[in-house]
């Protein structure tokens, strides 16, 4: 899969633990669980995983949508030219500075309007070289944590070029973190098991894995 490395949006609001990205183009909205990065102060690149997409209510569209006569030119203008307020919520997982990855919260959140980029394969590989960030995902309240962890691990596995060892190690880390919660662990492991990716027809298998 090729990745467009231009900014996919800008920071709308942020805190130490999460930030919200305003995107204009639905086609470029980061998929659930995928890695994004944004620069904060002092050469810090904050890394996070997208966990929710909101398409906000828009009074202009509301005014138009109730109308049976919507010219094609208007519909295309709304889709192609108009800044649809798509918001992507991102959980902060760590940061990198001077080439060093830190899997704990950054010193400062990113500023409003900072450009947000998708992470490259090598950045994903570098960041997922350690797995302590999985704890951040699992124990963040009020997010779909188990689904996010599974989606993020699947994403990392693929971006690392189908790294089976990574998948096994991520499963082990999840088992350590959830040693007292067997049901949660079982549900997560079923969502990241290697057989999901080992099908002879890789595409359907992957699609099944991502849904």
């Amino acid at each position: 899969m090729t990745h467009d490395l231009s900014p996919l949006g800008r920071v709308l609001r942020s805190s130490t633990t999460e930030f919200v990205v305003g995107c204009q183009d639905l086609a470029r909205v980061p998929t659930f669980g995928s890695f994004v990065k944004v620069q904060a102060h002092d050469g810090v690149w904050v890394y996070g995983a997208a966990y929710n997409v909101l398409i906000d209510d828009d009074p202009f569209v509301r005014q138009i949508i109730g109308n049976p006569h919507i010219p094609r030119e208007v519909a295309l203008d709304q889709k192609e030219n108009r800044q649809t307020p798509i918001e992507v919520e991102v959980l902060v997982l760590g940061y990198a500075r001077d080439g060093l990855v830190h899997q704990y919260l950054p010193p400062q959140p990113p500023a409003t309007l900072s450009d947000v980029y998708p992470c490259t394969a090598s950045e994903v590989t570098a960041f997922t070289g350690q797995l302590s960030y999985l704890r951040t995902i699992l124990f963040t309240p009020q997010i779909p944590a188990d689904e996010l962890l599974a989606a993020n691990v699947r994403e990392a596995y693929l971006r690392r070029g189908g790294d089976r060892e990574f998948l096994v190690e991520a499963g082990r880390e999840a088992a350590r973190l959830l040693k007292d919660e067997y049901d949660r662990l079982k549900a997560i492991l079923s969502r990241i098991r290697p057989s999901l990716f080992r099908s002879s027809t890789p595409e359907p298998a992957r699609r099944r894995g991502v849904t």
Partner: peptide, 14 residues
């Protein structure tokens, strides 16, 4: 500014 080509079925230029 916007240029809207009525009847063209194309998105306007903004």
């Amino acid at each position: 500014s916007i240029v809207y080509h009525h009847g063209s079925g194309a998105a306007p230029t903004v």
